[in-house]
Each structure stands twice: as C-alpha cells, then as structure tokens.
C-alpha cells in the first residue's frame, strides 16, 4: 500500500511540472505581455519598462522559467496585485472559510444525495423515484448562483430566517484562533459565536450542495439499481436476513464504489461553485477572492490558485483510490 502511495505521489511531479510550464506560458501569452496585463489602463511605456525590470520580465525566457520554478518550490507564489501581500498568506487567511463552506455543502450533498438515490432505486418507478430523478436533473441545470439568489430571496429577504450574507454577524465579537469560525466558537466556549457562524453557513451551504447532491443521488440510484437484482442479494433475502443488514452490508457496500469516486471528484465542482456562491453571499473565502482576482486581472493569485487546486485534486484522487481498498477488499488483491 505504501509503495502504491509513493508511486502515485511521484507521478504528481511530471503533472505539476507540465502545469507549471502551461501556467508560465499562459501569463507570458497575455496580450501586450505580463507587464501591461498587470498595469491594465495605466500601462504607459515607462511603467511597463519599470515593471519588466522589477519582475524580471526582460530576462531570457528560460531564465525566467527557472526563477519562477525556484520560487514555486520555496512556496513563493508572488504577491497579490490587489493587496500586495504574498499569495500564500492570502490563501491561508481565506482557506478556512472555504473549507467550512465546502464541508457543510458536501455533508448536505451526501446526507441527502445517498438516501435519495437509494430510495429512488428501491421504489423504482414510484413517486419517490420521480422525486429523486427530478432533483438530480434540477441540480445540474439550475445555475448555482441563480439557486443562491432564490435561497437568499426566500429565506433571508422574505422570511428573514437566515442572514443574507457574511460569515458572522458584526455584533459578535469573537476570538478567531484558527480561522474556522465554528471551531473557534466551540474551542473558546463562545457558543453563541459558533451558532452564529453555523447559521451563516446554511444558505451558502445549500446552494453549493446542489450540484454534488444531484450527481451523488444519480450515481447512487444507478449503482444501487444494478446491485439490487444481483444473485447474492437474492440469496441474502432467501436466507431471511434482516432487511437492514441486506441494505447495509450487501447492497450499499457493493454499490458504494462508484459513489465514493464521484464524491472525490466533486471537489473541483465545489471549488468552482464556491467562486459563485461566495460572491452571492459575500462570504469572505477563497472563492470570492478568486472572483475579485479574475475581475482585477490578479494573475499571481490565479496562477497560485490553479496550482493549488491541481495538487489538491490529485491528492483527493489518491485518497479516493486508497479508500477503495477499505470498502472493497477485492481491489486490494490486485
């Protein structure tokens, strides 16, 4: 097992190297070169020359690439154009917000999606099944930010049950030790602060959960349908096993493999969904920062973010593959 993990980690190296070349070429391909992209409207020839010298854009391209790679390896992703602080620091401050949001969304998606898909398969062709099919269709066809608008309008503007935006009410004066507001509140015993943070997570969490929920429900339904008629399930029924045991140990365990893969692959969707959701709910995480970066052409931030996502994505895939062998011993044999 360790050897497999080591091998997979080694395989990450060429991928990241390739990605770094693409990203390097990407910024150099900007119209008018990287300097005028940085400056935008303020691009006078003098300013461009100044930037070129300061950032080393006037050096030979190969030298620039190796400087760039050298910086990346030491964790230097450059400074954000918007805030003039190191990109990595900016990520570190905003990361907890997005992780909290993504975890809530994934939890909702799994907690609703798997039962919905399972019931859809169990009551195939009945009302429950139709509901599960419609939900999984709507989840992928209603744009995330439109759903966010609807939720905000109904539950924040009309009913006033949840706050319309932000991570915590301004009236709350909480200590933020870790940056994970819910955890902070629990650690310091400020339970009202923790509760306030949870309340702020509900609407954006629901909006962000929509796509993964739809996909998880769909895959679970298809996968359970396939297992449902299997011979070993029939045998288990004939043996008179409890329905609960048949469901948990025979059907779900065998049907979960594709579902686990799917859940792992949702990460990318959660992150790109977070860009839109956080913007609607003014939720100060990585997504909102990225949306601003796109708008203000903050290329160091975009570059750093893409590398960061690619690493995260590969690691999650690795974890998914490892978790296969925990769910299905047959995979371990190979």
């Amino acid at each position: 097992m360790l050897r497999v993990i080591g091998k997979r980690l080694l395989l990450l190296v060429p991928t990241l190297l390739g990605l770094s070349i693409l990203l390097f070429a990407w910024v150099r391909a900007l119209p008018g070169g990287p300097a005028s992209a940085l400056l935008g409207e303020r691009a006078t020839p003098e300013a461009i020359a100044q930037i070129n010298e300061a950032y080393g854009f006037d050096r030979p391209i190969i030298e620039q690439y190796f400087t760039y790679i050298g910086r990346l390896l030491t964790g230097d992703f450059g400074n954000s154009v918007q805030t003039n602080r190191p990109v990595l620091d900016e990520f570190a401050t905003r990361f907890p917000a997005t992780v909290e949001l993504a975890l809530v969304a994934l939890a909702i998606a799994i907690a609703v999606g798997i039962p919905l898909g399972y019931l859809g398969a169990k009551y195939y062709g009945k009302t429950v099944d139709h509901v599960s099919v419609v939900v999984s269709l709507l989840g992928v066809t209603v744009p995330v930010f439109f759903l966010a608008f609807i939720l905000k309008w109904i539950f924040a503007v009309q009913l006033g049950w949840f706050p319309p935006d932000g991570r915590q009410s301004p009236r709350i004066d909480a200590t933020h030790a870790t940056g994970y507001y819910v955890l902070d509140g629990l650690l310091t015993g400020e339970l009202d602060a923790a509760w306030d943070a949870i309340v702020h997570l509900v609407l954006p969490g629901l909006a962000l959960a929509s796509i993964p929920l739809a996909i998880i429900a769909r895959i679970t339904r298809a996968s359970v349908l396939q297992v449902y008629g299997a011979d070993y399930v029939r045998t288990a029924r004939a043996k008179g096993l409890l329905p609960r045991i048949i469901r948990d140990r025979y059907i779900l365990r065998n049907a979960m493999l594709p579902v686990v893969t799917t859940i792992g692959l949702q990460l990318g969707l959660l992150i790109s969904g977070a860009v839109l959701t956080e913007t609607v709910f003014n939720f100060a995480g990585i997504g909102q920062f990225l949306a601003d970066a796109v708008f203000r052409r903050d290329f160091p931030v975009l570059q750093g973010f893409i590398i960061f996502i690619a690493i995260l994505y590969s690691l999650i895939n690795l974890i998914v593959d490892v978790s296969y062998s925990l769910i299905d011993p047959r995979v371990r044999v190979q």
Binding site: G18, L30, P31, G268, V275, R297, L302, Y313
Partner: peptide, 24 residues
C-alpha cells in the same frame, strides 16, 4: 493525452475563467 490530463485536473469553470481572463 498528458496535456489533456493536466487540463482535466483543473475544474472546468476555472479553466474557462482563466482563459477568459487572458483573452480580455
């Protein structure tokens, strides 16, 4: 296929956003 795999490791919307940011 190596390049395709690398591009597939970036979420689709993010890829579109990055390309649009370059193109103006």
């Amino acid at each position: 296929m190596r390049v395709v795999d690398i591009l597939l490791s970036v979420p689709n919307l993010l890829l579109a956003v990055s390309i649009a940011a370059v193109l103006g």
